[in-house]
Design a protein around this nucleic acid. Structure first.
Length: 507
RNA sequence: GCCGCGUUGGUCAAGGGGUUAAGACGCCUCCCUUUCACGGAGGAAUCACGGGUUCGAAUCCCGUACGUGGUACCA
């Protein structure tokens, strides 16, 4: 098996959204499955959009998901530096090589000139507004200018960009691992900028140069890159040779649950669910965007739900561990079409994982949920027992508080609405006797409690069902929770009696 | 506008010439439980449209519609 390297280039301009995590995940699964290295490289070629702290944030998200890279900006690696701003000179060198070989050229056009060019084209009714072979000889670039003129402009320090020279009437073909044979007509691609006026490369140049230097064999990215794939193929052809080019896979998009379009941060805000893996605080705007981690998702569930959004192993299995995903993942089975994100189903995955996962894997986080609400946990074994009792009814981690708080603190409010119609002298007498009967119990065990309760009910000839409901409200405050005798057993004899007494004062 | 990609229930999806067109989420009904869940049993709901090819099309081909992405000195 050949060595596989995969690469992911998240934009460091903000949080890490679902689509981004899924791209990394598919990279990761593929690399692990084929025994390859997994590289994460950060794109920071646009300094105006770069946000401080984004790299660390991305790595924290990946770590939480269990997708730690073998090589990265943070950990260092054999191909340092990984940060594009630190590789600036490398890119320039290749851009100039292209010019020398006649595959690229200097362009001195100002922004205003370019705008005018596009307006003119529009006015003429042209279908395309591209800077391409049709118009390049009308523009201010080294193809039209005499060599001396070009040199003069360069010497004078005139701002310029380097553009790729795309020839007309050619076909560029490549095989996509998901989509199969792809073919593009070069007449539909323009002379893209490779090196910007500030000396930074565009994505087009950087991705090709980095993939070559870092010996990338497989490159996964979102479908939005498909239209610019021919530029990348051409650069490979001109610079390093097509035989060294990595294999491409263009992943489908994750779409909004309602309406249409790519899922964005705004949709999460609008529809009330997170779009980022973890909380992201934008240092520029001080705006906080909620993350899946913080609203109470388990990383196992998060990874699972992302993996099966746009991929399916052909069986009915839906719950996968990371190990299973690595074993069963196959890039050919990734879908071509985008998928709408469904938060209800996402929650279902979390519920399944809460039920399935060993408690010790998330016990600390539950403890934290209680402590946030001022309930101190000092008995781990007791907490363990409570988790076991309520986990079937918890979807998100904070549900453990709403479902389990009464195991730690006595109710302050009671559902008197439900109790009142059933409450009378007879029942009051029953519960007074029950208290005595409970306190005389030598062993506080489930069967003994239940037996005592039922015996007394039979003796007094009262329906057990009504009594149970009242008993539950006494212990819990409302009509919820696990079996009532289990609750009584768990909170203990003394506490049970106290709660009966307290509640009776209210009824 | 131009170019690319896509389209199986409300959503995720299996199936890729002959199937009663799987399964999951959600929804509804019932059972369990005199609580809320979990669990169990059922139910409603789908091949975008129009032409071909074929004995036969969800499946292959061509159009159309719709969606989506690109069309930046953003990635």
């Amino acid at each position: 098996m050949s060595k596989v390297r995969v690469r992911f280039a998240p934009s460091p301009t903000g949080g890490l959204h679902l689509g981004g995590v899924r791209t990394v995940l598919f990279n990761y699964l593929f690399a692990k499955k084929h025994g390859g290295d997994f590289i994460v490289r950060i794109e920071d070629t646009d300094q105006t959009r770069f946000v401080e702290g984004a790299e660390e944030y991305i790595f924290n998200c990946l770590k939480w998901c269990g997708l730690e890279p073998d090589e990265s900006v943070q950990h260092g690696g054999p191909y340092t530096p990984y940060r594009q701003s630190e590789r600036k000179e490398i890119y320039r060198q290749y851009a100039e090589q292209l010019i020398k070989d006649g595959y690229a050229y200097y362009a001195f056009d100002t922004t205003e000139k370019l705008e005018k060019m596009r307006e003119d084209l529009k006015a003429k009714g042209s279908h395309s507004l591209m800077y391409d072979h049709h118009i390049r000889m009308n523009m201010n670039n080294s193809l039209r200018l005499l060599p001396e003129e070009t040199q003069k402009l360069l010497d004078a320090g005139t701002p310029y960009v380097i553009r790729i020279k795309v020839d007309a009437n050619e076909f560029v073909a490549f095989t996509d691992m998901i989509r199969g044979e792809m073919e593009f007509d070069t007449n539909t691609v323009d002379d893209k900028v490779l090196l910007k006026a500030d000396g930074m490369p565009t994505y087009h140049l950087a991705v090709v140069v980095d993939d070559y230097l870092m010996k990338i064999t497989h490159a996964f990215r979102g479908e939005e890159w498909l239209p610019s794939a021919p530029i990348h193929i051409l650069l490979w052809k001109y610079l390093f040779g097509l035989d060294k080019m990595p294999q491409w896979a263009h992943l489908p998009l994750i779409l909004k649950p309602d309406g249409n379009g790519k899922l964005s941060k705004r949709d999460g805000d609008r529809l009330g669910f997170p779009v980022y893996a973890m909380d992201w605080l934008d240092p520029k705007t001080n705006e906080l965007t909620k993350g899946f981690k913080e609203i109470g998702f388990l990383p196992e569930a998060f990874v699972n739900l992302l993996a099966v959004l746009g991929w399916n192993d052909g069986t009915e299995q839906e719950i996968f561990t990371m190990e299973e995903l690595i074993e069963k993942f196959s890039i050919e089975k990734v879908h071509k079409g985008g998928a709408k994100f469904d938060f209800e189903k996402a929650k279902w995955f979390n519920h399944e994982w809460i039920k399935k996962l060993e408690i010790k894997n998330y016990e600390l986080r539950i403890k934290n949920e209680f402590e946030l609400k001022d309930i101190a946990i000092n008995d781990d074994a007791y907490l363990h027992k409570v988790i076991e009792l309520v986990k079937d009814r918890c979807t998100l981690l904070p549900d453990f508080y709403t479902q389990g708080s009464f195991f730690f603190t006595a109710p302050q409010q009671w559902d008197t609405e439900s109790v009142k119609p059933k409450w009378n002298e007879e029942k009051a007498a029953y519960f007074n006797l029950l208290k005595d009967k409970f306190s005389s119990l030598q062993f506080w065990e489930l069967e003994k409690i239940e037996l005592a309760f039922k015996e007394l009910a039979a003796e007094k000839n009262i329906k057990i069902g009504e009594l149970q409901m009242i008993f539950r409200v006494m212990l819990v405050g409302s009509k919820m929770g696990p079996a009532v005798f289990v609750i009584a057993e768990t909170i203990g004899k003394e506490e049970t009696i106290n709660r009966i007494e307290n509640a009776m004062k209210q009824f």
